[in-house]
């Protein structure tokens, strides 16, 4: 079947969205959209954080800062870095930010971003990718599970140090 003859089903929309989604390195001009999307998802606008993240990871040396665009429109981002020897953990990829526009959800954009950053990690010789999420973050938990991620051998701990 020719691609342009696909019926207008959810499946064909997914196929089209995946085909038209471009993943590229983030540039300075993306920050406005990234900050806006992150603020929509988290409720907090973090201009300084994202500027610093771009300066640190945007050059592709300390980490990977990627964005997705569909038909020249920004629709998502992913951010990660390589971390090594934290309590004996060999170098591994860490994904610590991911966002996809509401309108672009369930169209394979998140999967494409995740696949791309995993490919970057793999190219640096990394064999594992990890992330840390709030237990209550059902959306991202479900997403990362759907990408084949599972509970690993490390566990997150915390303590209140405020008076």
């Amino acid at each position: 079947m020719k691609k342009d003859k696909l019926p207008n089903t959810a499946e064909s929309k997914l196929f089209k969205a995946e085909e038209n989604t471009l993943i590229r390195d983030a540039v300075q001009n993306d920050l406005t959209e990234i900050i806006k999307l992150d603020a929509q998802n988290t409720g907090i606008e973090k201009n300084d954080y994202w500027q610093a993240a771009f300066e640190r990871f945007g050059n592709g040396e300390s980490g990977f800062f990627l964005v997705a665009e569909t038909e020249h429109h920004f629709c998502g981002y992913i951010l990660g870095e390589v971390r090594a020897w934290e309590f004996g953990s060999p170098p591994c990829g860490w994904v610590f930010a991911l966002g996809v526009h509401n309108e672009a959800r369930e169209m394979g954009v998140g999967s494409k971003l995740f696949d791309s950053i995993c490919l970057h990690f793999k190219e640096t010789g990394i064999e594992k990718v990890r992330t840390m999420l709030a237990r209550s973050d059902h959306l991202n938990m479900s997403f990362f599970r759907s990408q084949g991620m599972r509970g690993g051998p490390f566990i997150q701990l915390e303590k209140n140090v405020a008076d």
Binding site: R145, S146, G151
Partner: peptide, 18 residues
């Protein structure tokens, strides 16, 4: 949280990893 994050589709798609 773990049980709630695994849909039937995800389970079937990823069970080969286990």
């Amino acid at each position: 949280a773990t049980l709630n994050s695994i849909s039937i589709e995800t389970f079937l798609k990823t069970m080969h990893y286990y």
